[in-house]
Amino acid sequence: MIKNVQVELNIYGQQGSSVHVTQLLGVTPDEQYEIGDLKGDGPRVFDVSIWNLFSNRHVDAIRAEHGQDPWGRVQWILLLLPHNSATLFTKLRLEGYLITLAVSLITDHEETTFTVPAQVLQQVAAAGLDLELTPRSTKHTQLSYHDVW
Score class of each variant (00 low, 15 high):
Met1Pro: 05
Met1Glu: 03
Ile2Asn: 01
Ile2Cys: 04
Lys3Cys: 03
Lys3Ile: 01
Lys3Thr: 00
Lys3Trp: 03
Asn4Ser: 08
Val5Gln: 05
Val5His: 03
Glu8Gln: 10
Leu9Phe: 08
Leu9Met: 02
Ile11Gln: 09
Ile11Ala: 04
Gly13Pro: 02
Gly13Gln: 03
Gly13Val: 07
Gln14Val: 02
Gln14Lys: 14
Gly16Met: 07
Gly16Pro: 06
Gly16Ala: 06
Ser17Ile: 08
Val21His: 04
Val21Gln: 05
Val21Asp: 01
Thr22Gly: 03
Gln23Asn: 14
Leu24Tyr: 04
Leu24Met: 12
Leu25Trp: 08
Leu25His: 04
Leu25Cys: 02
Leu25Arg: 02
Leu25Ala: 07
Gly26Thr: 02
Gly26Pro: 01
Val27Gly: 04
Thr28Gly: 00
Pro29Gln: 12
Asp30Met: 05
Gln32Gly: 04
Tyr33Pro: 00
Asp37Ile: 02
Leu38His: 12
Lys39Val: 14
Gly40Ile: 02
Asp41Lys: 13
Pro43Trp: 09
Val45Cys: 03
Val45Met: 11
Val48Ala: 05
Val48Leu: 13
Val48Phe: 14
Ile50Glu: 10
Ile50Thr: 14
Trp51Glu: 05
Asn52Gly: 00
Asn52Ile: 09
Phe54Thr: 01
Ser55Asp: 03
Ser55Lys: 10
Asn56Glu: 11
Val59Gly: 01
Val59Asn: 09
Val59Trp: 12
Ala61Leu: 15
Ile62Val: 15
Ile62Pro: 05
Arg63Lys: 15
Glu65Met: 11
Gln68Met: 09
Asp69Tyr: 05
Trp71Phe: 15
Gly72Val: 09
Arg73Thr: 10
Arg73Glu: 13
Gln75Leu: 12
Trp76Gln: 09
Trp76Ser: 11
Ile77Thr: 12
Ile77Cys: 03
Leu78Ile: 05
Leu78Lys: 15
Leu79Arg: 15
Leu80Val: 00
Leu80Trp: 11
His83Arg: 14
Asn84Ile: 05
Asn84His: 14
Ser85Gly: 06
Thr87Gly: 06
Leu88Val: 00
Leu88His: 06
Thr90Glu: 10
Lys91Pro: 02
Leu92Thr: 03
Glu95Leu: 14
Tyr97Gln: 05
Leu98Val: 00
Leu101Ser: 06
Ala102Lys: 15
Ser104Thr: 13
Ser104Gly: 04
Ser104Ile: 02
Leu105Gly: 08
Leu105Met: 08
Leu105His: 09
Thr107Phe: 09
Thr107Lys: 08
Thr107Arg: 14
Asp108Ile: 00
Asp108Gln: 13
Asp108Pro: 01
Glu111Phe: 10
Glu111Leu: 14
Val116His: 12
Gln119Lys: 13
Gln119Trp: 06
Gln122Arg: 14
Gln123Asn: 13
Ala126Leu: 12
Ala127His: 01
Gly128Asp: 02
Gly128Val: 07
Leu129Gln: 09
Asp130Val: 01
Leu131Thr: 03
Leu131Ala: 01
Glu132Thr: 10
Thr134His: 07
Pro135Met: 07
Pro135Asp: 01
Arg136Ser: 02
Arg136Asp: 00
Lys139Tyr: 04
Lys139His: 09
Lys139Glu: 14
Lys139Met: 08
His140Tyr: 13
Gln142Tyr: 08
Gln142Glu: 08
Gln142Ala: 11
Ser144Tyr: 10
Ser144Gly: 13
Tyr145Trp: 11
His146Asp: 15
His146Gly: 11
Val148Glu: 13
Val148Leu: 15
Val148Asn: 05
Val148Gly: 00
Val148Pro: 00
Trp149Asp: 12
Trp149Cys: 09
